[in-house]
Structure formats: structure tokens, C-alpha cells
Write a protein that binds this DNA or RNA. Structure first.
Length: 275
DNA sequence: AAAGCCGCCAACCGCCTAAGG
DNA sequence: ACCTTAGGCGGTTGGCGGCTT
């Protein structure tokens, strides 16, 4: 990989010197930096260039690919869209669970979280968090950073998510593993309505900590760590993607934050207030 | 059918850090 | 040691499309 990168750099430098004169003699107009949505032509120019010379040295890439874009813009377009194995479309329940869990551990470290979800970009995870989770926090009149909301996520949402995952009839091995770790005494299927009916008294969860570990191991168990091998690109608006998680019935992409679940959580928060 | 609203997401912006001169 | 540049990251925004009235 490292060697590949080095040789790519070399090739870029060479291609740069090839087109250097045209850049040097370019008019002011040519130097204008384009902004806004990328065109198909730009995409293919960037893709072709990276396919040939490799990634990195983005300012050089922008110039030598003949793009009137900033290096940053090229990098972002590559990472978030053109890169092979980028997955777009609905975040699966399992991914939601993992995001919630990792966020509880690492906070807004989006790129770090994204590393644990192969094919997902930090941008997508960040968007998910802001458009779904933060929205729900507002709806619940909670500060997203408050202990109350964090506890709600950990002791109510996450077990509920696991229930729903289980309800899909998939990943039973992992869910049972997670159940063991989350609550060695009480099964999660009852946890959401009993042991998690109040956040107080759930300290043993914190002590035993980790849904995280189970999530991560779950993810690798399901084979996502391999990079999935699928390099198809999903066009804007498309929701399908061939992921190890996606059930045939399409439920995997379903939004967990349903009215029913919000109502449920509100009940839990209300109960908690009364204690 | 049209207008207004809202949610989602692609892309930009600004800041920070590391590397190189 | 300092300055400059590039890359990376998180926050923010603008536009598009779908939904509601």
C-alpha cells in the first residue's frame, strides 16, 4: 500500500510536469475555482486520474486532472462518493446500533466512528446523527449531550434496537452475545420494558460497559470488515446496497426512530423523572 | 395544481495539525 | 525555530425533492 502510494506520487509529479506549462500559461479564467455540485464529466475526470495515478496530493490531482476544483473538494468528492466500496442509502439497524454505541464512547469523532463502519463515510454518519438523533433529542426536549439523553440511548434505544434486529430474525448469535454483555442477568427482550424501565439502577450496565465490544465483534462476525468487495456505486436517491446486513425484505434500512419508539422513550423518561 | 414547509445530503468553510523547507 | 502548505476533521449551509396544505 505504502509502495503503491509512493509510486503514485511519482506518477502524479510526472503528469504534473507534463501539463505544467498549460497551467502556468493559463488565463485568470482558467484559475477560477469551481464550486457546487460535481458534474459527470468532473467525476469521470477525477476518477480516471485517480485510477491511473492513485490518490493523495489533492491540489496536484485537481490541476493535472484538469479540474477547476480545490484539492480539498477533489479529496472530499473522492472519499464521499467516487471511492470504491462507498455505501450509501439507508443506515441499517445494526449500523445505527453501532453508531449510537461508538458515539457514546467517542463523541463527535466522526471519522473514527466511520472507520468501524466499512463503506460509510464520516459525512454520512455525521448527517445521520444530526438529522435523526439530534432531531429526536430535540423532540424529547433533551440536550443531546445530557446524561439523561445519553442514558436513554444506552439503556433504552440500544436494547430496543437489538430487539428489533433480533425481530428481523437475523444475527441471532450476535444479539444473544450482546445480550449477555449488556445484561448478564436479564435478557434484553425484557430489559427494555423491565430492567431498563428506569435509568437509575442500570449502573451495572456502565460497569460492564460494553455493548460496544459486541457491536464491533458483531460487525466483524458479519463479515463487513472485509471491505465487502462490492464496488458498485449507488446513485443518488437509490436505497439499495448489497450489504451483509440488508435483509431481503428491506427492513434493515427502516428507520428505528418511529413514533412508537419515541413514545416508548418518552414514557421511560417520564418514569425516570418520577423516581 | 401551486405554494410552502421540511428533511436529507452533498459540499463548503474554518480550524487544527503535521510535514517540509 | 519559524513559516508555509497540504491534509484531515468537525461544523455548517444551500439546494433539491418529497410531503402537506
Amino acid at each position: 500500500m505504502e509502495m503503491e502510494y509512493t509510486s503514485s506520487v511519482h506518477m502524479i509529479m510526472r503528469s504534473l510536469s507534463d501539463c505544467g506549462s498549460s497551467v502556468a500559461n493559463g488565463s485568470e479564467e482558467d484559475m477560477e475555482i469551481r464550486k457546487g455540485p460535481w458534474t459527470e464529466e468532473e467525476d469521470s475526470a477525477l476518477l480516471n486520474h485517480i485510477t491511473t495515478y492513485g490518490e493523495g496530493h489533492w491540489n496536484s490531482v485537481a490541476r493535472s486532472a484538469g479540474l477547476k476544483r480545490s484539492g480539498k473538494s477533489c479529496r472530499l468528492r473522492w472519499l464521499n462518493y467516487l471511492r470504491p466500496n462507498v455505501r450509501r442509502g439507508n443506515i441499517t439497524l445494526e449500523e445505527q446500533l453501532l453508531i449510537l454505541d461508538l458515539h457514546s464512547r467517542w463523541g463527535n469523532r466522526w471519522s473514527k466512528i466511520a472507520e468501524q463502519l466499512p463503506g460509510r463515510t464520516d459525512n454520512e454518519i455525521k448527517n445521520y446523527w444530526r438529522t435523526r438523533v439530534v432531531k429526536q433529542a430535540k423532540q424529547l426536549k433533551c440536550d443531546v449531550n445530557s446524561k439523561q439523553f445519553r442514558d436513554a440511548l444506552r439503556y433504552v434505544w440500544m436494547p430496543r434496537l437489538m430487539e428489533q434486529i433480533q425481530a428481523q430474525g437475523r444475527s441471532t448469535m450476535c444479539v444473544s452475545q450482546a445480550r449477555e454483555i449488556v445484561n448478564p442477568v436479564t435478557s434484553v427482550s425484557t430489559a427494555s420494558s423491565k430492567s431498563c424501565s428506569s435509568f437509575s439502577g442500570c449502573e451495572q450496565f456502565q460497569a460492564s460497559s460494553s455493548v460496544s465490544d459486541s457491536c464491533v465483534s458483531y460487525y466483524s462476525l458479519m463479515g463487513s470488515g472485509s471491505g465487502a468487495g462490492s464496488s458498485e456505486r449507488v446513485e443518488k436517491g437509490a436505497t439499495s446496497s448489497s450489504t451483509p446486513f440488508e435483509p431481503e425484505n428491506g427492513f434493515g434500512g427502516a428507520d428505528f426512530w418511529t413514533d412508537e419508539n419515541i413514545w416508548f422513550l418518552q414514557q421511560q423518561l417520564a418514569d425516570d423523572d418520577h423516581l
